[in-house]
Design a binder for these strands. Structure first.
Lengths: 208, 208
DNA sequence: AATTCCAGAGAACAGTTGTTAACTGCATGG
DNA sequence: CCATGCAGTTAACAACTGTTCTCTGGAATT
C-alpha cells in the first residue's frame, strides 16, 4: 500500500516534520495559544508563508502534535496493562515504563499535560479523544482479568479512567523531576507505585 | 488591625480587582502565556500604562489570581476532610461540595486546571505551593482518623496527594460538564463517587 | 521534450504588542 | 491651606503578528 513517495512529497514531509519539531521545542516554555506561526517558521528557517502549505493554523499543528504524541502510544498501553505477573510486579513494570517514556519523550509529555486543559479547544478535544481510547484499551484488558469477575460495565470504565488519569499524573510528576537528582525521581516512582498499589487493593475488595 | 483604608487606596483596589476579573474572563478561552496586558486594560476601560500600577507583568497578575482562586479554599478542604459520618456519607458530601464550588466559581477552577501545567513558571509554582498546602491539610486530617492507625508518614502523604489530585480531576470533569444536560453532571458525580469509594476501600485494607 | 503542478520565497498590508517618558488632577498629610 | 504623593492618562517607539498576492524553480506528468 505505501508507495515509496517521490522526492517532491518526501521533501514536503521533511519540512512538515521540521515545523512540528520546532513547535514542540518552542512549546516547552509557553502554551499553544501563544505560539505564533512566524515564530515556528523562523525556528525552522523557512518563509512564514510556507507554514500554510502544511497547516491551516497553529491550532491545526497542535492537533497534529497530539497525534504524534499519543497516537503511537496504544501499543505501550496494552503492553503495560496485559502483562503477566502478580499485581505488584505489573505495577512496578508500569511505573518503570512510564518513567522511561517520560525520559525519552519529555517534550511530548509536557505538551500533552499542558494542552489537556489548555486554551485551544480543538487540541483539548483531540487529547480527550485519545485518552478516551486509552481508557477503552484499559477497560478491555480489565474485562479479561479474573479479578474483574462480576464487575458491571460502568465500574470497569470508572476504574479504567482512574488508571489513565493516574498514569498522566505520574508522568507529569516524573517530568517535573527530570532535571532533579535521581533521588527525587526514585521518590516519585515510590509514591506512584504505592498509589497504584492502593488502587489495586481497592479493586480486589470492590465487591465485598 | 485592618484600617478602613482611604478613598485613594479604595479606588486603587477597585481597579486592581477589575483587572483581575477581566483577566479571569479573558482566560476562559486562552492561556495565561498569551494574555496581553493591553487586552486586559482594554477590557476594563483604563489606559494600558495603568496596568503597571498594580502588576509587574501578566505573570505577576497570574500569581495573584492563584491566590484568589486557591487561597480561600483551605476552610472548605478542612470542612470536607474532617466532617463526620461514615465513609460513604463523607464521600458524597465531598463530591457535592466540589460540584457546588465548580458551579459557583467556574472561571477560577478553569484557570487552575489550565495553568497548573501551563506555560508560565511562576504561576505553576504558585499553584503547586497551594496544592502542597492542601495535601498537608488532608494529611493532618488523615492522621487523626482512626483508620490511619499504624500508617507511616510517607504513606499518609501519598494518600493525601492522591486525594488532592482526585479532587482536581473531579473538578475538571464537572467543569467540562457545566453546559451539558444535568444527566451528564450526575454521571460525573457518580463516577467520582465510586472512584473515591474504591480509594477508600484500598485505604481500609492497606495494612493487610 | 514540453507542460503542468506546487512547495517555498518575497514583499507588503493593517493591527497588534510591551515599555518609556512626561503629564494631570485629586486625595492625602503636615 | 498648601505641598506632596500617586493612580491613571496621553503620546510615541520599535518590534512583532497573521494574511494576502505575486512570483519562481524544479519535480511530476504527459
Amino acid at each position: 500500500m505505501s508507495h515509496t513517495l517521490g522526492l517532491r512529497q518526501a521533501q514536503k514531509q521533511k519540512t512538515r516534520q521540521a515545523l512540528l519539531d520546532a513547535a514542540l521545542g518552542l512549546l516547552e516554555e509557553q502554551s499553544l495559544s501563544s505560539l505564533g506561526l512566524r515564530e515556528v517558521t523562523r525556528a525552522v528557517g523557512v518563509a512564514p508563508t510556507a507554514f500554510y502549505r502544511h497547516f491551516r493554523s497553529t491550532a491545526d499543528l497542535g492537533v497534529a502534535l497530539v497525534e504524534e504524541a499519543l497516537g503511537s502510544l496504544h501499543p505501550m498501553i496494552r503492553t503495560i496493562v496485559s502483562s503477566s505477573g502478580d499485581s505488584d510486579q505489573r505495577i512496578e513494570r508500569a511505573v518503570g515504563l512510564i518513567a522511561q517514556h517520560v525520559a525519552t519523550h519529555p517534550a511530548h509529555v509536557r505538551f500533552i499535560a499542558r494542552e489537556r486543559h489548555g486554551g485551544v479547544q480543538s487540541v483539548r478535544e483531540a487529547i480527550q479523544d485519545q485518552l478516551a481510547r486509552f481508557a477503552d484499551d484499559v477497560k478491555v484488558a480489565l474485562t479479561k482479568d479474573p479479578v474483574s469477575e462480576g464487575w458491571n460495565d460502568d465500574d470497569l470504565l470508572m476504574l479504567a479512567d482512574l488508571y489513565v488519569d493516574q498514569m498522566l499524573m505520574t508522568a507529569s510528576l516524573f517530568l517535573d523531576a527530570l532535571e532533579a537528582p535521581e533521588e527525587e525521581r526514585r521518590r516519585v516512582a515510590q509514591v506512584a507505585t504505592r498509589q497504584m498499589r492502593l488502587i489495586s487493593i481497592g479493586r480486589e475488595h470492590w465487591l465485598d
